[in-house]
Simulated assay, not measured.
Amino acid sequence: MPPTTTAAIDSMGIDGPNNTPSGGFVCKFAGCTAPPFQTQYLLNSHANVHSSARPHYCSVTGCPRSEGGKGFKRKNEMIRHGLVHESPGYICPFCPDRDHKYPRPDNLQRHVRVHHVDKHKDDPLLREVLSQRPDGPNRGRRRRGNGF
């Protein structure tokens, strides 16, 4: 049975037959197991993980990730890193070196769960760390548009 007109149109791209299925932008790097990407842009962004280039740098002078330093492979990683400089900082109460600040409370909580497993669940400091939430009106939670 020949394809319907609609099916034939759906399989055509602007320049002819579209050989990639929806979300079919596949990484051709040998051994890469990443699932297909929805857009060419996302595939191009992913390609950076296979490169040693780190073209994105922190704008804060003196940061080890600034120009001349380590940098980032992906722009979104550099943007997320900016929180380190903008956050008031969440400090681990159990570490003797109090210089390292975590930009978000969930980062501190992950650190505590991994590096301080010896703390008893009823420890008041542990309970305080694990109860911290991000500041601000949204506090990191999505809200429904219908007011519920």
Results as ranks from 00 to 15, higher is better:
P88W: 13
V84K: 14
R110E: 13
H46R: 01
K119E: 08
P35L: 07
N19A: 06
G69V: 07
Y41G: 00
H85R: 04
L42I: 07
H100S: 04
N76I: 02
R142Y: 03
P64L: 08
V129W: 10
F37H: 06
N107C: 13
D135E: 15
H81K: 05
P137N: 02
R54P: 01
N19E: 09
A7D: 00
K75M: 10
F37R: 08
V112E: 07
P55R: 07
H116L: 03
F37S: 02
G147D: 10
G31R: 04
L83Q: 10
V129S: 12
R54N: 00
G89L: 10
V84M: 14
L42Y: 10
R98I: 12
D97N: 15
L126D: 08
R104K: 14
V114H: 15
D99F: 09
R54W: 01
V26H: 07
S45A: 03
P96M: 14
T6W: 10
L42W: 11
T61Q: 08
I79N: 13
S45N: 09
V84E: 15
N44G: 10
H120T: 08
N107F: 14
H46Q: 00
P134N: 09
R144K: 13
R142K: 06
L126S: 08
G145K: 10
P105Y: 13
R98S: 15
R54L: 01
P105G: 11
N19W: 01
R141Y: 11
K75R: 14
P96S: 15
A30V: 03
P17T: 00
P3M: 06
H46I: 02
E67S: 09
Y90H: 15
R127Q: 15
D99G: 12
G24P: 08
S51Y: 07
L83M: 13
P3G: 03
G31W: 09
